[in-house]
């Protein structure tokens, strides 16, 4: 599915070829088409790209069964269709927007499966996109590529732990007990990894 070209990128300061070669903005364009024209072709393209990622996210750490994973894919994809009007390409990268919806839906599904009786949905905890600053977010579209690059160079012990925290939704304490590591070690590995990746934002802001 990935075109290995990377030639469509014209951002001079990101000289590195991004191996996946995806034009990050293709997905933002799809979301805008869905919002403005209810464009099903764009939706189908988006589905083919993101549904397999959402399914992988659902199955991370065998958090959910295959049936629930498919259910989550449907739920997230329908939310994307409904909420596309709230997506603002000036302020967020499409992948971050989709990831956030997937994360919220998965949290809600966990809570439903564990019979939580709560008046809140996970999306109630996200600050409104309107509060985001365009400047930072514009950078983040390029930063996303840098972060992906960066991630490949992280030491394996750091990658393992941030995958547990982010993709499996484990708390630091749960990650510590699963990996049989002291909590302090888990915290410092997460912090090291996250600081390195976060630093990519500062780099891209300076290079403006």
């Amino acid at each position: 599915m990935d075109e290995k070209t990377g030639t469509s990128r014209d951002q001079g300061d990101v000289a590195k070829t991004i191996p996946t070669g995806r034009r990050t903005d293709e997905w933002s364009e799809c979301l805008v088409l869905i919002a403005n024209k209810q464009d099903r072709a764009a939706y189908t393209r988006l589905f083919r790209h993101f549904a397999p990622l959402i399914k992988a996210f659902a199955l991370s750490g065998s958090a959910l069964s295959a049936t629930h994973a498919d259910e989550l894919v449907q739920e997230v994809m329908l939310k994307i269709w409904q909420k596309a009007g709230g997506f603002n390409p000036e302020k967020a990268a499409a992948s971050t927007w989709v990831y956030t919806i997937a994360r919220n839906c998965r949290t809600d599904m966990f809570r439903r499966l564990n019979k939580f009786d709560t008046p809140l949905a996970a999306e109630d905890f996200s600050p409104d996109q309107e509060h985001e600053e365009p400047f930072m977010q514009l950078q983040s579209r390029r930063s996303a590529d840098r972060i992906r690059e960066m991630m490949k160079n992280l030491p394996a012990d750091q990658t393992q732990i941030i995958a547990k925290v982010y993709m499996e939704g484990k708390s630091h304490a749960e990650a510590a007990s699963e990996l049989d590591l002291p909590l302090g070690t888990v915290k410092s590995r997460v912090r090291l990894a996250v600081q390195k990746m976060q630093a990519q934002f500062e780099v891209s802001q300076e290079s403006r």
Binding site: T44, P52, A56, V73, T96, Y99, S143, Y166
Partner: peptide, 30 residues
Amino acid sequence: TVSRLQAVGAAMFESLDPEPVGDALLDRVL
């Protein structure tokens, strides 16, 4: 900081090995 940390999560999300999703599911959603 939290939006940056979410972007970190999104980058990990995009780097996952995709799990095949059948066309049947796409049709159901459509």
